[in-house]
């Protein structure tokens, strides 16, 4: 049963799953890095984006990959508005308030989704869902390969944006030195909103890449966020590189765990890594915070 070829296939599958995890975790770590809070609404907003992709397909027949730019833009706008209209407004500048507001938002969003969309599992039928690519002994579903490649590409674009553009530099400046940022004329509140928007835009992208091979229910975001949170802690809170490396480690761990222990118990590996990293290196692999 533990044929090296099966393990090889498991590792490849985990790597592919890791791509989307990276995207979800990068959004989470970006928001944490700038706002210094864990966005508890992350899973609910991912679920909302997945429904957006689903309804775009169901009502208008838009292919999830075609919808990608639209959903990214929409998710950015939604996140920006959510910060400007709700989170920033009611937090009164206190980080712990932001934390509670995102928690409240998640409860509201989940239940509104349940009210309007019902509890049924929804899936999308795309013609390419059943296509496989053969690499050695591994048969890899085409949608997963696409989502892996697109996730990496989007993370690279985001990385370039953060290091090359003025707004990206301003986001990184605000993350570490808010006062200094104000003194060069950076609109810190707007940078908060933009960062939140980018974090949610990552979820929009993840939703488009997930839907061809995944399903959505009002609770389907939570599984991803638990995983993403583990990734962020593993890689180091606020670290981009950490989120990327952590995403793949967790993806592979999950796949191998599933292989050896079965689908139900496979998640134990993730929890184990979470506990180990907290015990051995609480700052994470790439964490800088003392």
């Amino acid at each position: 049963m533990f044929d090296p070829q099966i393990i090889f296939a498991g590792v490849l599958n985990g790597l592919l799953a890791g791509g989307v995890y990276v995207l979800v975790a990068v959004g989470l770590t970006l928001i944490y890095g700038v706002l210094h809070i864990i966005n508890f609404a992350h899973g609910s907003l991912l679920m909302l984006a997945m429904y957006a992709v689903f309804w775009l397909w169901r009502l208008l027949g838009v292919d999830p990959y075609v919808a990608l730019p639209l959903v990214i833009a929409g998710a950015f706008g939604f996140g920006w508005l959510l910060y400007r209209g709700v989170i920033g407004r009611f937090s009164h500048g206190r980080d712990e308030n932001i934390l509670l507001i995102t928690l409240g938002l998640s409860i509201v969003i989940d239940n509104v989704a349940l009210l309007f969309f019902g509890g049924d599992t929804q899936t999308i039928d795309v013609p390419y869902a059943g296509l496989f690519v053969e690499i050695g002994a591994a048969f890899l579903p085409l949608p997963k390969i696409v989502s892996f490649a697109a996730s990496l590409l989007l993370c690279a674009v985001l990385g370039l944006y953060m290091t090359r553009s003025d707004t990206g530099k301003a986001i990184r400046a605000v993350a570490k030195e808010r006062q200094g940022a104000r003194l060069v004329g950076i609109d810190v509140d707007n940078i908060f909103a933009i960062s939140y928007g980018i974090g949610i835009a990552c979820l929009g992208a993840a939703a488009c890449l997930l839907m061809p091979s995944y399903y959505v229910t009002p609770t389907s975001g939570h599984a991803f966020v638990l995983v993403a949170f583990t990734i962020v802690v593993l890689g180091g809170m606020g670290s981009f590189i950490g989120a990327a490396v952590g995403g793949f480690i967790i993806g592979i761990t999950e796949a191998l765990g599933g292989l050896f222990l079965g689908e139900q118990l496979g998640q134990i590996g993730i929890s184990l890594i979470f506990i180990l990293i907290l015990l051995l290196k609480p700052t994470g692999l790439f964490g800088s915070r003392a």
Binding site: K169, R172, A173, K176, E177, G180, A181, G185
Partner: peptide, 21 residues
């Protein structure tokens, strides 16, 4: 206390000086 951006390069710090003006 200077309030420079510790995580950014010297060049990026200087360039952000002209972020608004």
């Amino acid at each position: 206390g200077r309030r420079v951006f510790p995580n950014l390069s010297v060049r990026d710090n200087l360039e952000l000086g002209s972020y608004r003006r």
